[in-house]
């Protein structure tokens, strides 16, 4: 029985690590700011959730389980809110949704050069 729990715990912790790695890979691979926020918020939320679930199995006391849940809740709120704020600022600066490009800064020579390209 305890071997089974150990195995389950190892599986949960390892898949949590895989999710964090996927989030980081997404941050590097995804093309623009908006998509990168997607990768970070969602992958890290699940990754931390899996790690918390793994740690809960060996917590040993109800209070520690609550403490771990509280950590997950606070990190989840912080990542969702900060992701929302970055996206909000991107939209306020007129960042394009499909390409992630910012509008050109009014430099006429640069504008025409970009249009020709």
């Amino acid at each position: 029985m305890s071997l089974l729990i150990d195995l389950l715990q190892a599986a949960l912790l390892l898949s949590g690590v895989v999710m964090f790695a996927a989030g980081t890979l997404g941050l590097l691979r995804f093309p623009d700011t908006y998509c990168r926020i997607h990768a970070l918020t969602k992958a890290d939320n699940l990754g931390l959730g899996l790690i918390i679930a793994g740690l809960m199995l060996s917590a040993g006391s109800v209070l520690l389980v609550f403490k771990l849940l509280l950590i997950w809740l606070l990190v989840m709120l912080a990542s969702a809110l900060s992701g929302h704020l970055v996206a909000w600022e991107g939209d306020a600066q007129g960042m394009d949704a499909a390409s992630g490009d910012l509008p050109s800064s009014g430099n006429a020579a640069q504008d025409s050069a970009e249009r020709e390209r």
Binding site: V18, A22, G23, H38, K42, A43, L46, G49
Partner: peptide, 16 residues
């Protein structure tokens, strides 16, 4: 919790 798991796996599948 269900949609969180789906969202994470969706990101995993897209990044890989």
């Amino acid at each position: 919790i269900t949609v969180s798991v789906i969202a994470g796996l969706d990101i995993l599948q897209r990044t890989l």
